[in-house]
Write a protein that binds this DNA or RNA. Structure first.
Lengths: 213, 213
DNA sequence: TAGATTGTTAATCGATTAACAATC
DNA sequence: TAGATTGTTAATCGATTAACAATC
């Protein structure tokens, strides 16, 4: 036990964490069935997922919500206080910088960058906008581990290259483009078009099967 | 052939579309190997994915990029010109409203809403901000098929309920909360915390295996 | 023809889930 | 003890991929 949590499970752990966070504090125990209902999963899947963290459930009773949160946070490495840099201080970058949920999970925004000289020096949510020229030195001095790219598509690859050169190995890419990075670098893409297109498929195929049935 | 494209394939089709869109126009043919390299996939997987669309490749040559785009767009139902409503005109909602990529794939923003009376009536990217009271009638009159929730977490469930009542069956949720909706409603979540937590896991486990090896 | 690449099969791999003994 | 729920096994299901005949 305890080794190699499968990717599918890793991607569901944040969801469980969110559900636990939204529960009333009084609710001290939760069953796999309840958790599954809220998370939209199967109870056997929930139990299997949680079993990778160790066996902290109580038979006949359920899981202690406080302990479960702690176990999931440990598994995800959230105790480390990871420093994030946001590149791009437009609407999207500002929305990300303003997002309070960062701190809830032990992340902090170490630096915010923009190419626009007019924005540099201004404050967004108490954070000074830095010039792109300072990317490398601030990544180093702030100990940035994760780069969040919130630039237009055209600038994203160059920003990614600079982040990688500066030693960043985890990138969250909000720009609508496919980044090329060395294979040791983890990239996660968040893409509005992709999401809309997947919804479009379901609308499309749903409509088809509805008219068929 | 042609029936029931598996979910894993559906979720990769937008990526192929993006790669095709980023290619130089002159490049008339592309092989599954090339597409796989850029998309970060296996060439057999690419061929299998594309085979669900029908057999439009040419043996010994590859796929016609223009035809392939058309086939993928048809499979995803992107010819339909889907109307999107954005709820929340803060930084995130504004970023989404400003996003030009919508139109590239046949989506259009039919309406943009906000609770803040000070914002209502102002224009964002040529789009008037509407009061929440008009949600139902504008969804109906504009023919909104997809609701994009860009509100704070606390408002998201109520907005979702109103969208569902108004007949919307596809929701893209940017608010950091888990929505409860009837099962016929498709919800896709885009969650910053989730993405960061998954990156955190890889940093965490990568560091562990690096120190082990 | 020789070289290249598709489309598809079949093997493999991994994820989901039903079922139930263990046990609170 | 009776009822409930976990942890885990084994069956099932689905996704990935190596391999290769088909064929441009």
């Amino acid at each position: 036990m305890r080794e190699s949590i499968p990717p599918a499970t890793v991607s569901r752990l944040p969801l469980y964490l969110r559900v636990l966070g939204e529960m009333p504090k009084a609710h001290a125990m939760i069953s796999s069935e309840q958790l599954a209902n809220v998370a939209g999963a199967n109870s056997a899947q929930v139990r299997k997922d949680l079993s990778y963290l160790g066996s902290y459930g109580v038979r006949g009773v359920g899981y202690d919500t406080v302990q479960l949160r702690t176990q999931i946070e440990m598994a995800l490495g959230l105790s480390a206080d990871l420093v994030v840099a946001i590149i791009g201080a437009g609407n999207l970058g500002s929305a990300l910088a303003n997002y309070k949920g960062f701190n809830d999970w032990g992340f902090s925004v170490g630096a915010l960058f923009d190419v626009d000289a007019a924005k540099v020096g201004s404050q967004i949510d108490g954070l000074a906008v830095q010039p792109m020229s300072r990317l490398e030195d601030l990544v180093a001095s702030a100990g940035v581990m994760i780069g969040v790219i919130a630039t237009p598509a055209g600038a994203a690859q160059e920003v990614a290259d600079r982040l990688v050169s500066a030693g960043v190995t985890s990138i969250l890419n909000f720009a609508p483009t496919v980044l090329r990075v060395p294979e040791e670098v983890q990239v996660r893409r968040v893409d509005l078009s992709t999401e809309l297109q997947i919804l479009s498929f379901h609308l499309h195929s749903g409509r088809r099967s509805a008219s068929a049935g």
